[in-house]
Design a protein around this nucleic acid. Structure first.
Lengths: 265, 265
DNA sequence: CGCCGCATTGAGAGGTTTCAACAGACGTGG
DNA sequence: CCACGTCTGTTGAAACCTCTCAATGCGGCG
């Protein structure tokens, strides 16, 4: 039903999707040691330890096909996911029935933290392309935290970082449209850089509509922004392919002195 | 230097500000048992326990005078505060040097969670009136979590709730201005209700300018919104005194079916 | 009394949204 | 293989909303 020829662009380099096809929970070979994301994953410091004891923090892997949701609506969470390949958007339904995008999640990002507390939420993590996640049981995490106190702070930091990300998104909301778009481009570029890819040239996994929703504007306005930035020569965007040509200009626009604007995690 | 005739409106009923003036850390009489907020405080489930052992989770109290900040800028946090009386705004400086309000915190709310993760943030929690906070050391919290595993989830839930609050704020950003203001009024009303006060009639601790910043608009626009809502008769707002006359209308405006809009914590 | 911070109000300018038509890519099915 | 529908993205023009700038009012405090 859904197209699935989408390339797993973010599959950790060195692994082969077709070679190790599914492994949907069951086996215990979910070692983080062999993972190409090892040094880029947000839970790297939690799973890496001398005693192999908690290597099984990752209890399985799941494939999430494009356009489907990682969790069910209103699901009280007993597990978290770490994005292994692909990308996700966090979206929530408003009263009019349309979806609002609250965030994008790339490989190494934890998804599901917000669902720990919620009774009757309507958030959804939707795969923007065919994706894969590593599954962590929340019970395992709390066990680990109990037994290795130094891991507690690591996990709290991850949650706190999520909080800061959300604040940053709120913060962007008050800026003029151009600045929001520039900030978005820089943010996603930064994400790519941290994953070891070029931050100058990359492919967007999300639609114009998703971008518009995320930066609080409309599909049409995003299209016009792309035009404007292309015309200025500061970017070269064709369809979903992005090239950032004048990073300094964008930084100036977004006011991201790295000092003033809350850090975009 | 600062005016201080502001009434401690939110001082827990039954306690007397003048009678027990400062107690700025030192003593150990910070029992939550006697606190009038006991059943309304977000950390109630964490401090309440059979063994008195962790009664000293609260290590002190601090007075924060109006317009001053609870934490220093860029301060890496080794402690958290719970608002005991008064109100705070969370604000961050943008590139132009002006402050953007990201949230308001009332008695029972935890402040400082975002600072756990941050190196070089520029968030500030500023007291909107003379306020008092209970101080918790982060080390004590992690100790507690290590020794009483069931407390772990409680704390994670508090953090997760903060995350959801931030998402909700982002979510509001995409709504039309009137809806954002209606949502703000309902939210602050709900806060009052949960503290045992009327959600129909209350006094705002924040300025028009702060409200404007929070709902991503200007002081002038807030003033016009107040006018419009007053004219419709759905509210009666004079200065900082608020009376919500037609809650259903506001709910309809904000689309808060309590089902669709992410819960406003 | 006068200053200062906060709030109200007005009118014009400007930016965004809306609505709509159109174009291109893609997959399906004939 | 081509036609078609759908999804996505582009573009235009008009309407609307919100901001900006500025003048004015109000109240507390020195």
């Amino acid at each position: 039903m859904k197209s699935s020829d989408q390339i797993d662009k973010f599959r950790p380099a060195g692994t082969d999707a077709t070679q190790n096809p599914t492994t949907v929970s069951g086996g215990h070979n979910f070692s983080c040691e062999g993972c190409a994301l090892k040094n880029k994953c947000s839970i790297r410091n939690i799973t890496s330890n001398k005693t192999q004891q908690f290597e099984n923090l990752i209890t399985g892997r799941r494939r999430i096909v494009r356009n489907s949701s990682a969790f069910r609506k209103n699901e009280r969470l007993d597990k978290l996911y770490v994005v292994r390949s692909g990308q996700f958007k966090l979206s929530a339904e408003d009263c009019a029935g349309s979806q609002r995008v609250l965030g994008f999640y790339l490989p190494g990002d934890v998804i599901g933290l917000n669902a720990i507390a919620v009774d009757g939420h309507n958030y959804q993590f939707i795969a923007l392309e065919n994706s894969e996640v590593c599954e962590m049981s929340l019970a395992n995490i709390t066990n680990l935290m109990g037994q290795e106190p130094e891991k507690q702070m690591l996990f709290l930091r991850i949650m706190s970082e999520s909080l800061n990300s959300a604040f940053t998104h709120s913060f962007l909301a008050a800026m003029p449209l151009e600045q929001r778009f520039a900030a978005f481009l820089l943010w996603i570029g930064g994400k790519h850089a941290r994953l070891g890819y070029s931050d100058q040239s990359f492919r967007l996994a999300m639609s114009r509509s998703d971008i518009g929703s995320y930066i609080h504007t409309t599909l049409a306005s995003v299209s016009r922004l792309v035009n404007k930035f292309n015309a200025k020569g500061v970017v070269a965007i064709q369809g979903r392919m992005v090239e950032l040509r004048d990073r300094n200009y964008l930084v100036g626009l977004a006011c991201r002195d790295e000092e003033f604007l809350p850090r975009v995690v």
